[in-house]
Amino acid sequence: MLANASLFLDFDGTLVDLADRPDDVVADAELRALLARLNLRLGGRVAVISGRSIAQLDAILGPVAQEIALSGSHGCEHRWQGISAQPHRPPTLDQAAERMRAFADRFAGALVEEKSYGVALHYRLCPEAEKEAVELAWHVARDLGLELQEGKMMIELRVAGGDKGVAVRRMMRLAPMKGTMPVFIGDDRTDENGFEAVTELGGAGIFVGKPGETGAHYLLESPAAVRAWLEQMSA
């Protein structure tokens, strides 16, 4: 399947299991080596497309992050072939973070994650806060002109103009990905734009998790299953 493919990979929930706290996620040596092998096998056509910032991905992935294509902050920032592109960081993100921190102080277990071009409110450890967290995020997004992005037990505000589909289309216009079949693997609603993009470009989406409503064509049950499949493809 991967002979003439370009491979786009979400990170959290796809290559690694989700953690209660984003800072607890690590990329083990086996995952780093797997990404390096895949990138070699595909002639440089491997990308990690994540809601995390590129700075976070660099810290987690180590040296292999410099070898593969990266798109961070839900398609707002990119680095590939030695070229980086980042938007302006608006001061409204700091205002959003302040309002989210005030909210998180009311709920034990709520966590605010500040990113390069976004700010996320995690409520995995206090699911009872979900309704109020989502309502707050909608209000803040409206007040400050920010994009709202829902994920698994979290909600994020970010700069407008990017998503994972934008990232896929951007990379597929360039060699060596241009003219190949895009394959996108992801695990939640933030990845649906990526599934839509690869479908439009004649490729396929693979959803990670339980069957449900998705634009992906195929299913893998867990990050462990994703890595096992990628291991077979890299052999």
Rank of each mutant, 00 (worst) to 15 (best):
E113R: 10
G72A: 05
L157G: 03
L121Q: 05
D105T: 09
L111M: 05
E150A: 13
F207P: 12
P91W: 06
N39P: 03
E231Q: 12
V208Y: 03
G209L: 07
F103N: 09
G194N: 12
P91C: 04
G118V: 08
V64D: 04
P22N: 10
R227E: 06
G109E: 14
S6G: 14
V64P: 06
R52Q: 00
L219P: 10
L38R: 09
G162F: 01
L40D: 15
P176W: 05
P22Q: 13
A5K: 03
M1E: 04
A69P: 00
L57D: 05
N193S: 15
M153D: 05
S53I: 03
A197M: 11
S73W: 02
L35Y: 11
L42N: 03
E213M: 11
A108I: 13
A102Y: 01
L7K: 00
P63Y: 04
D105I: 03
C126G: 04
A224Y: 06
H74L: 02
E132M: 08
L111A: 03
R37A: 13
V198S: 02
L15D: 08
H217P: 07
G13H: 11
A102T: 07
M177I: 07
H217V: 07
R189L: 15
L148R: 12
D94Y: 06
D163R: 01
R79H: 05
A27Y: 15
A19V: 12
M181V: 15
A85V: 01
G179Q: 08
V16A: 14
M171I: 06
E147T: 12
P90K: 05
N39I: 03
E192W: 14
A175Q: 15
L15M: 06
S116Y: 01
W80R: 15
A216W: 09
R142P: 02
A110G: 09
A5T: 06
G161E: 04
A104R: 09
V46C: 07
K178R: 15
R170A: 06
V208K: 03
T199H: 15
I83Q: 11
D163K: 02
E147Y: 10
L201T: 06
V168F: 04
R37L: 12
H139S: 12
L201P: 03
V64S: 04
A137C: 14
R52V: 00
V134Q: 10
A27N: 13
R45D: 02
V119L: 06
A97H: 11
R106A: 14
I54W: 06
E132G: 08
D23N: 11
L121M: 03
T214W: 03
V198E: 01
P22T: 10
G194H: 10
L34C: 07
I60V: 14
A97Y: 08
